[in-house]
Design a protein around this nucleic acid. Structure first.
Lengths: 193, 193
DNA sequence: GTCTATAACGGGATAGAC
DNA sequence: GTCTATCCCGTTATAGAC
C-alpha cells in the first residue's frame, strides 16, 4: 500500500482537483508527487495512462470512504444509508471536494476522449447498481426497473448538483438540501399505491 | 449580422462541440471558418478572447432557440411546454448536441476559471426561473419555494443526464425517458394532497 | 481586413546513466 | 525504480505584405 505509485495517484487527484484534467501538466504533477517526470512515464506510459489510472484510483477511494463505517456505531437503517451514500459526495471537506472535482473533470473529458469512456461507464454502472440496491431495501415491493431508473436519476442529479456546487452556482448547504428532497421525491414515487 | 465575425463564432461553437474547449486549435478553427489564423487573432486578440466571445455567443443562441416557437403552431399546454423546454436539450440533432456539449464544457471550465462563473450563474438562474414558472402553471397551488426547488433539481438532472449522454454512458432515448419520468416525479411531488 | 510566413514557446515524451 | 537532460512536435502568436 501507500506505495510510490499510490503517492503519484494521490498527487494526480490533487492536481486535477486544482487545475482540472485540462490543466494537468505532467511536470506539475511530478513536483506535487515529489518525483521526476520520467518516473511518471515509466509507471503510466503516457498522459492518457495517468488519467485512466487516476480515474480508477479516485473511484476506489470513493468506494472506500463510502463504505467505511465505524463498526462501533449503531447500524444504519437502509434509508439512512441511502442518504449517507448520496450526500457523502456533497461535503465541504478537502477529500470529498477533490474527488468530486476530479470525477466531474473526468466525466467532462470523456465527452471528447473515447479512451476514458469505458472505465467511466463501468464505474457509473457499479455506482448506480449500489444505489438501486439501497433503494430496493427501502422499497422492497418496487419493481427492479423502477429502482434502476430512480437510481440513475438520483446519481445523475448528484452529478449535476455537484457541478453547480463546484462551479459556484449553489452553496453546499443548498445543494445538500436539494439532494435530500430529491431522494424523498424518488422514494415517494416508489411507494405502493 | 452574419458578419465575418459571426461566422468565426459559429465555427468556434462547432469546433468546441467536436473537440472541447481544451481541444480547440486556432488553426482548426481557422480552417472551419474558412479564414486565416491571423484574422482570428486580429478579431479576438488571443485564445482566451476566442473562448470568451464564443461562450457568450453560445449562450445567446441557446436562449434564442429555446424561446423560438412557430407562431402558427397550436399553442402548447403548460405541461407540454415544460416537457418541451426540458427535453429540447436532449436531442440527437447537430445543433442541440453542439450547444449541449459547449454548455457542459462551459460549466466544467468554470470550476477552474472564476472568470466564467458570473455569466454561468446568471444564465442558470434565468433558466431555473423559467422552469419554475412553467411548473407553477401546471401546479398553481404549489408554494413558490417548492417550485423553485423542483426547478433546480430538474435542471440539474438535465445537466447530469446530458453529460452522461455526451460521454456515451446512456443512449439518447434512455436519457429522454429518464428525464420524462423525472418530470412526472416532480409534478407528483407538487400535487395537492 | 485579410493573407502568408515564421518566430517563439510550452509541454509531452524518450534516452540513457545510476 | 528513479533521475537528469533533452529532443521534438504541435500550437500560439506576431510581422509584414497586400
Amino acid at each position: 500500500m501507500a506505495s510510490r505509485n499510490t503517492r503519484i495517484l494521490e498527487a494526480a487527484a490533487r492536481v486535477i482537483a486544482r487545475r482540472g484534467v485540462r490543466g494537468l501538466r505532467v511536470e506539475e504533477l511530478a513536483a506535487e508527487a515529489g518525483v521526476s517526470t520520467g518516473l511518471i512515464y515509466y509507471h503510466f506510459k503516457d498522459r492518457t495512462g495517468i488519467l485512466r489510472h487516476t480515474l480508477e484510483f479516485i473511484n476506489d477511494r470513493a468506494e472506500r470512504y463510502t463504505n467505511a463505517r465505524d463498526p462501533e456505531a449503531p447500524p444504519l437503517g437502509p434509508r439512512e444509508e441511502l442518504q449517507q451514500v448520496l450526500l457523502l459526495e456533497l461535503q465541504d471537506s478537502e477529500e470529498v471536494r477533490e474527488n468530486s472535482a476530479a470525477w466531474g473533470e473526468l466525466r467532462a473529458s470523456a465527452v471528447f476522449d473515447p479512451a476514458l469512456r469505458e472505465d467511466l461507464a463501468r464505474a457509473t454502472l457499479v455506482w448506480v447498481q449500489e444505489v438501486a440496491a439501497l433503494l430496493g431495501q427501502v422499497r422492497p415491493m418496487a419493481p427492479a426497473v423502477k429502482l434502476a431508473a430512480a437510481a440513475e436519476r438520483l446519481t445523475a442529479l448528484l452529478e449535476g448538483l455537484s457541478m453547480r456546487w463546484l462551479s459556484g452556482g449553489v452553496g453546499i448547504d443548498h445543494a445538500r438540501a436539494l439532494m435530500e428532497s430529491g431522494i424523498e421525491a424518488e422514494l415517494a414515487g416508489l411507494e405502493q399505491r
